[in-house]
Write a protein that binds this DNA or RNA. Structure first.
Length: 111
RNA sequence: CGGGAGGAUCGGGCGGUCGCGUGGGGGAGACCCCAUGAGGAAAGUCCGGGCUCCAUACGGCAGGAUAACGGGUAACGCCCGCCGAAGGCAACUUCAGGACAAGUGCAACAGAGAUAUACCGCCGUGAGCGAUCACGGUAAGGGUGGAAAGGCGGAGAUAAGCGCCCGCCGUCGGCACGGUGACGUGCCGUUCAUGUAAACUCUAUCCGGAGCAACACCCGACAGGACGGCGAAAGCCGCGUCUGCCCGACGUAGGUCCGAGGUGGUGGCAUGAGCCCUGCGGCAACGCAGGGCCGGAGAUAGAUGACCGCACAAAUACAGAACCCGGCUUACAGAUCCUCCCGAAGC
RNA sequence: GGCCCGUUGGUCAAGCGGUCAAGACGCUAGCCUCUCACGCUGGAAACGGGAGUUCGAUUCUCCCACGGGUCA
């Protein structure tokens, strides 16, 4: 991903959950906040409750793919956390793509 | 053809576009090229090891594990063979399968009585006209129970009965033969004894503790402190670590411990009790010898996804390495192969 | 990733090889009261699942499932 770093620090996740703006749909929830930098930072959260390791990996990879393909459309300089919910385990790639892009549009993250 | 038993293997292949981890190469750089990239269970963490630190891991108690016998293995609670028991017409499957005859405990309810007993019954004696009662004998019959004085059958004897006696079976003990052994077969006998050890316990064998978040090293930040007593010395006490306790060992001034700080990097880290083929030994597990192959995962918020095409009946199961191996257990759509048993029909 | 615990009515929980598996709160029916509450009497409701040992398992053993703790 060209313009994006990963979020490794648990404190950044906490700050987004507490102070970021958010929106949610059936399968995913999105939190974001401006970070004052030139590039974006992305965090993906897929909890244990969603499924076992194979299911969690698949969801995480699909979410990352969706983000990668839509990266050019997004504004820059924000931290974004995408949280998978339980329903994501049964959704296919296209459903996730539709929901996630819909949330990005609702939050005004698209250029 | 139908039904069944045992074992083994696969659990995806080819191609295209974009994207990711690792290694290598090219380029001043942006970047480009090449190679490669999850499992049979990677899982549960139930056993056993390697490896690292603690003492070179040593003695006793406590604690834990295993349990017919022989072998295999680095080791095992695993595997192979074999014995015994149970089940099945059979192929075959299952078994925590030592010792209640060392001692202790427990056995509710029912039942007269639970390791010793006489409720009904049977028999004898005495009392009574009699119904019946009292005392004694008896475990063959009834009833209760998971279990009632080895089991089944029989004859004599007896007041009635009883392994009191006989035959067969079982059990225990002894002897002989076969087997490396568990054990089997045969003979003899004064043995005849409730169950339970996944109850305490006893017997035999094995086990030191912790775990890669172990451990070693580097950079930076912070805040430093303690190291005693006796003695001339040896040494003793104390303190610390090693295991719950004892014993013991080691350390006690270029070392150790406590406190503070809690951030990043490197190694450990992937060639291993490895896989394949051939030969020899062995019933087998497996071992030995020779040859070949490395078919290269190695992250540190953690790499495999999206879309499409092709053949096949279909691509749909369970499921993601985190120090590494050997097992066990659990989950699993579908496909293929081998061996064997039973039944029916035919030759 | 490693190492340890736990699971009993709706909730909190005691028990531990054997007769009805205690108790509290809650729920419910009746009584009391003009009515509600309090009080009194009664009732329903549970051993996470599956195997094994045993005459008998909530208890003992094994395997799963779920929930929690702890270690840099």
């Amino acid at each position: 991903m060209r313009y994006t770093l990963s979020i490794c620090d648990n404190r950044i996740f906490r700050r987004l959950y507490n102070k970021g703006k958010s929106a949610a749909s059936r399968c995913v929830a999105v939190y974001f906040r401006r970070n004052g930098k030139r590039e974006n930072r992305l965090g993906l959260t897929v909890g244990v409750k969603v499924g076992h390791a194979v299911v969690r990996n698949r969801i995480r990879r699909r979410l990352r793919e969706i983000y990668r393909l839509s990266e050019e459309l997004l504004i820059q300089g924000v931290d974004i956390v995408i949280v998978a919910r339980s329903a994501a385990a049964k959704a296919d790639y296209h459903e996730l793509e539709r929901e996630l892009l819909g949330l990005f549009a609702r939050l005004g993250l698209l250029k």
